[in-house]
């Protein structure tokens, strides 16, 4: 079942001489449990795609459907609720609130959604535990390493029963071992039924995805083929990678 659906989405910034076609006719469908990576050079529209997919920004034309609900025509309140309940974001700079502990950061979106503090907190703890961060729950962001901060940000993005995880260069400043563990966590969320879209220019990270979409000047120009099925893997005629 498709959790995110973009239908012929276009975005034009500015007007007249300063007009920029940031996105042109993007079709994208992301199913429950699947991880899609978006690759493309800087300025190709990756962040624009993600903010539109998360209903933070309106497309100039085309439709966005999140968890079965069409975003166009929704009231501000409905959109805000959709974002709190269904969509989790992870940004490059983690944007954790400095004055709150890890667990407070994670449970904040639930509290904003009206869930009582105690219950929100226990859900927040569960999310942290799931990402191996239970012992850092009471630490403040400035007491955490970059990798730990990013894991807290992911916990915050998947806390509750959010079904769509959107991540923009989620391992921006991390070394490659930490970058890999960020991708493993996102994948774990996907195995739990979350649909995820990750924007990155790093092919090592993109290679964790089921599907990689290549963006260029606002257009989806290409994508990877689906992985070989188990039958194909058993077929000796299909070439497999090997170290030589």
């Amino acid at each position: 079942m498709s959790i995110l659906e973009l239908q012929r989405v276009s975005k034009v910034y500015g007007e007249g001489d300063t007009e920029v076609d940031a996105l042109t006719d993007i079709d994208l469908s992301v199913n429950r449990g699947s991880l899609v990576a978006i690759m493309g050079p800087s300025g190709s529209g990756k962040s624009t795609l993600l903010t539109i997919a998360g209903s933070l920004e309106e497309p100039t034309s085309g439709d966005v459907i999140i968890d079965g609900a069409r975003v166009r025509g929704m009231s501000r309140n409905d959109k805000a609720r959709l974002r709190r309940r269904t969509v989790g974001y992870v940004f490059q700079d983690f944007n954790l609130l400095a004055g709150l502990t890890a667990v407070e950061n994670v449970s904040l979106p639930l509290e904003l959604d009206g869930i009582p503090m105690k219950k929100a907190r226990s859900k927040g703890m569960a999310a942290l535990e799931g990402l191996g961060l239970a012992d850092r729950a009471e630490s403040y962001p400035d007491q955490l390493s970059g990798g730990e901060r990013q894991r807290v940000a992911i916990a915050r993005a998947v806390v509750g029963e959010r079904s769509l995880l959107l991540a923009d260069e989620p391992s921006g400043a991390l070394d490659s071992v930490n970058g890999e563990s960020v991708m493993r966590m996102i994948l774990t969320a996907c195995h739990g039924g979350v649909a995820a879209v990750v924007v990155t220019h790093d092919a090592k990270l993109a290679s964790w995805a089921d599907r990689v979409v290549f963006l260029r000047d606002g257009q989806a120009v290409d994508e990877t083929l689906p992985p070989p099925s188990p039958e194909e893997l058993l077929n000796p005629d299909v070439p497999k990678p090997s170290l030589s």
């Binding site: 290679s207 990689v212 290409d222 994508e223 992985p227 497999k240 990678p241």
Partner: peptide, 20 residues
């Protein structure tokens, strides 16, 4: 360039899956 890029990323996906 894109044909080769796609091929390489697909290969990388196969390797990553083995590590998964």
């Amino acid at each position: 360039i894109q044909v080769h890029r796609r091929y390489l990323v697909q290969l990388m996906q196969q390797w990553t899956r083995m590590k998964e």
